[in-house]
């Protein structure tokens, strides 16, 4: 595992997911890991699900400099059989971190919990922005990706507040290519953020991601969307963007937002 487990080095994480899907037994070493961000805890939840799904036996090597590994990761170490952990096992809370798992339905309780826990820190306006973005993201996870299990997170990462939704359902490019034509997965991700672009046949939408995008932009935050073979990153404070193809496939979509905290 890398020094910091967060929303970066996506290809490395995806490579690990691929390896454990074809391995009977695998060692996961946290020896070099010094920090896990809120997004990192949610990524570890996805990792747990992949391990359980494939019944991979794991050996965990802990880090001396890392205070604690999430409880769900420790539980699968003892499990050694191919069935998922109950979704409630992924409810994980630290002083500045919330992680939550949900099956096939909207996580109203999670967004309420985020508001309660972080509104004083964020202030009313930013808390409302985070609320809106999480609601749009989880609706996408349930409606569009038809993901049965998905994970949400929110919390403080140094001088930023980060939040997001990670699912293992139908990817954005897979969904969009049924309606639109783009040359590659990067094109599909960029298109998905535009106004009036959607794939619903009933209750036509296309505004949710657009407003979410605008809210992060107004807060001068950062948005990362990873799906299938592409990732797009928008850094609104620097007005810059990065887009790249992934070497390893993500089965699903990870949407990760960040906004700066007031100093």
């Amino acid at each position: 595992m890398p020094k910091a487990i967060d929303g970066g080095r996506i290809d490395l994480i995806l490579q690990m997911l691929e390896v454990l899907r074809v391995s009977d037994k695998i060692g996961i070493s946290f020896e070099n890991t010094e920090y896990i961000s809120p997004a990192g805890y949610a990524i570890l939840a996805i990792l747990c699900d992949a391990i359980c799904e494939h019944g991979t036996e794991i050996v965990l090597v802990r880090s001396p400099s890392l205070a604690a590994l999430p409880s769900y990761l420790l539980k699968i170490g003892k499990k050694g059989k191919s069935s998922f952990l109950a979704i409630e096992e992924f409810e994980f809370e630290l002083d500045q971190v919330l992680v939550f798992g949900k099956v096939s339905s909207l996580a109203f309780d999670f967004v309420q919990k985020v508001s309660c826990k972080f509104e004083n820190l964020l202030g009313e306006d930013k808390a409302w922005d985070v609320d809106l973005i999480l609601k749009e993201l989880m609706q996408n996870a349930v409606d569009h990706s038809t993901s049965e299990r998905y994970f949400l997170y929110a919390g403080v990462n140094r001088d930023r507040f980060e939040f997001g939704v990670l699912d293992s359902g139908v990817s954005i490019p897979a969904k969009m290519e049924t309606v639109y034509d783009c040359k590659d997965d990067i094109g599909f991700l960029k298109l998905a953020l535009k106004k009036d672009v959607g794939t619903r046949r009933e209750r036509v939408g296309g505004l949710g991601l657009f407003h979410m995008f605008n809210n992060i932009k107004r807060e001068k935050g950062k948005l990362v969307i990873v799906s299938r073979f592409a990732q797009v990153r928008r850094y609104f404070s620097a007005r810059s963007a990065e887009e790249s193809k992934l070497k390893h496939k993500l089965r699903g979509t990870w949407c990760m937002g960040q906004i700066p905290l007031e100093k």
Binding site: L132, E136, L207, G208, F210, H211
Partner: peptide
Amino acid sequence: LKIASASFFDE
């Protein structure tokens, strides 16, 4: 209430 949902308002 705080709604914070473009989807609800739109529909």
